[in-house]
Nucleic acid binder design. Structure first.
Lengths: 229, 229
DNA sequence: CTATCATAGTGTAGGACTCACACGAACGAG
DNA sequence: CTCGTTCGTGTGAGTCCTACACTATGATAG
């Protein structure tokens, strides 16, 4: 069933850079393409935007269809529209990035689509289309944004020890941080809730668990806090 | 001549928030709409993206056609795609913002399109579509970005006294700055070229003129400078 | 030519923040 | 009971930020 318009329209797509955090490093979710163009190559999950669907909604739909992911933190990144970026014709893609808790989602992504896999961010294969450039921009944005907005918590389990939070920042910023200074800064900020609970199943002294308090963050933000790490 | 596709395609547009700087305040360029919808309302300059045209190219073309502007600083802002934002159907708009030197461009914009005008940023009329929200986002982005990237110079004439630079920051950040601290910071950064020239036609002591040196900025950036004001 | 007016241009000191740095306590494993 | 591993904690030096006021210069008006 064909659709007809008075003027030509470029096609509109979305692509998503999905980040997850490991014990070791930062991961990205890729999908192996089954069809031409770039059949067999790894690519970012994505697809075409339907009529009367916002780009954000399209991105969420595709993440669910292609990787079984739901309820993730999602933010628009940039719109890539150079003619020639897709050999099928002029396709403009609204790129997004998403942050997921790997502990919750690792399995889902691996089973739902048999050709989905997590890759370490410094160990990516060559990607289809201009997805390499999209990934680079997303990575840069994450590094920048994590420093002045508390989005990093989206990568952690709900309750976490401070070591895990520090590890997150070390992995994302790609440099070591001082433990005492890091703890002081984060705790003094007052956006963490100290829980009456410690880690379990560790073969050494167990660390106290914390939880990010969105409520406290919003209160403090109104009072002029500026989150910065 | 109709254009036909196998799947429906939303229409793709661009809109531009064009900022200029006055002796008094920050201005935005608006165009009065001649046609429905929103005929007679003020709106951001913009229009539809053609096939095989990148969004940035479309934005530049529209700025030229609707306001006679060329060679402006242009950056992508965000893509607005909520269904319902345009009563004609599903139109997705890649919003941009532009910075121009009012001294050069004020006239052009006023003559080329008789229904174009500059408005003070705290004195805007109600805008068509979701252009009010687009403007707000652009304004917020400019305020944020001007602090860590030397984009403010795009709003000034090539040669300017330090007072004018300070005035720019005061207007954009909407708070007064200390003269001595401001000068110290800017000059110590080393990105300004001190010229052998002073203001003319002023009825008081004339100030020295400076020029932003892109070359120095890039050199220093590589050496780890981080611009911050 | 003198007085007036407007803006240019300049330094310092107190407080806040940043950064580097090391060791005893807790707990599980063997 | 010993070993191994991670937890949790404070201080001092240096740097950066901020607040603050007066003299110099040049144009204009009387």
């Amino acid at each position: 069933m064909p659709f007809t318009y008075d003027y030509p329209r470029p096609a509109l797509a979305v692509d998503c850079v999905v980040f997850g955090l490991d014990e070791e490093d930062l991961k990205v979710l890729l999908i192996r393409r089954g069809q031409e163009p770039y059949a067999g190559r790894w690519a970012l999950p994505g697809g075409f935007v339907r009529e009367n669907e916002s780009p954000a909604a399209a991105a969420r739909r595709e993440l669910h269809e292609e990787a079984g992911l739901r309820d993730v933190y999602l933010e628009q990144l940039y719109t890539f529209g150079a003619p020639g970026r897709d050999p099928r014709g002029h396709v403009i893609s609204v790129a997004h990035y998403a942050l997921v808790r790997l502990s919750d989602h690792r399995v889902a992504a691996a089973t739902d689509a048999s050709d989905a896999a997590w890759f370490g961010t410094d160990d990516l294969p060559r990607l289809a289309f201009d997805h390499g450039a999209i990934f680079e921009m997303a990575h840069a944005r994450l590094r920048a944004k994590v420093r002045y907005q508390p989005i990093g918590f989206e990568l952690l389990p709900e309750r976490f020890p401070l070591r895990m939070l520090q590890h997150l920042y070390e992995v994302v910023l790609d440099r070591p941080l001082d433990k005492r200074n890091f703890r002081k800064k984060v705790l003094e900020m007052g956006i963490l809730e100290e829980l009456d609970e410690v880690e379990t199943d560790v073969s050494h002294r167990a660390a106290r668990l914390y939880r990010f308090s969105k409520a406290r963050y919003q209160t403090l933000t109104k009072k002029g806090l500026n989150f910065e790490l």
